[in-house]
Amino acid sequence: MLGLFTRAVLVVGAVAGIAGSALGQTKVVKVDGSSTVYPVTEAVAEEFQAATKGAVKVTVGIAGTGGGFKKFTRGETDVSNASRPIMKGEMEDAVKNGIEYIELPICFDALTVVINPKNTWAETMTVEELKKIWEPAAQGKITMWNQIRPEWPAEKINLFGAGADSGTFDYFTEAIVGKAKSSRGDFTASEDDNVLVKGVEGDKFALGYFGFAYYAAHAKKLKAVKIDWEKDTLGPVEPSAANVIAGKYNPLSRPLFIYVNKKSVETRPEVRQFVEFYIKNVKELSAEVKYVPLPDSAYELVKSRFDRMDVGTVFGGHPEVGLTIEDILKRETVSEAKSHGDDKK
């Protein structure tokens, strides 16, 4: 018996001994960050490994956009998936640690507000109406459909939404309520969009929101609400790929990004190879995993930004909603966060 234990102890000792010698010569590209961007990067990584016949390995984590940036600005990852632009604090961390990065939009994510197929009244909603339902002040007060529009039924609205840890929640609250993470709390929240789909599917008086990809996969069971944004003059816009690309489906469509560590690209050819492969194939692959690709002209701008190695972000550290892809690609990139007053151009 003790023999066995001694052996076990020896193994542990040896293990601790070699702990210092890391992965050695294997080429690994490390990616972490947003779980929203994950399916895209997973698809690219899969194809990339197949294309390089396993000579370069890619790992992808789902620490979340914020968690990903934490690692990225410490220099632990080569590429960071992000469902929002880098924020002020994260830019400061990057500057402090001497990390320079290139911000590359890769595709669009669109959020879809959904209702039950049997719901015939709420096919179009304004952002103001959605805000009235979802803002923190609505908690416990706005509970009936006819509180939104008097002609709507006097039935309870059953709300389904993203869990507070998800990028979807951040994005929806930012776009609809006006302040990230500001939401009523009395709704069925789940990180798992399948739960939300099931909830809305089975309830005539339900209202929910989640990613366009999830809606597209379950389009038969649900009905998408057309969004009427008072700040533009387009009237009700339906969530569709065409409308997203045209920059019409506002404020509920957003670009997704990868951030690339400049030093990794310069010192390790496999990282450059991966990012180039990413830009070249993301159009097809993002569509395959049900996101909305950028227009071709935009991918050329993305490629030239990467080729020029333009470091920094065009957002200056503050979230903005409703930008067209041209705005994002043609603005100048900066590395130092601006103060909040002058972030509008």
């Binding site: 070699i18 890391a22 050695g24 990584a45 490994q49 890619v58 984590g61």
Partner: peptide, 29 residues
């Protein structure tokens, strides 16, 4: 920080190709 997408296995303790190599604990990192 365990990963989600990882399409390779940890290094095997004994590598035959290209040269015989024994690296009993490399997988652990």
């Amino acid at each position: 920080g365990a990963l989600t997408f990882i399409a390779f296995l940890p290094p095997s303790p004994i590598v035959v190709d290209p040269a015989l190599q024994i690296q009993p604990f490399k997988w652990i990192m």
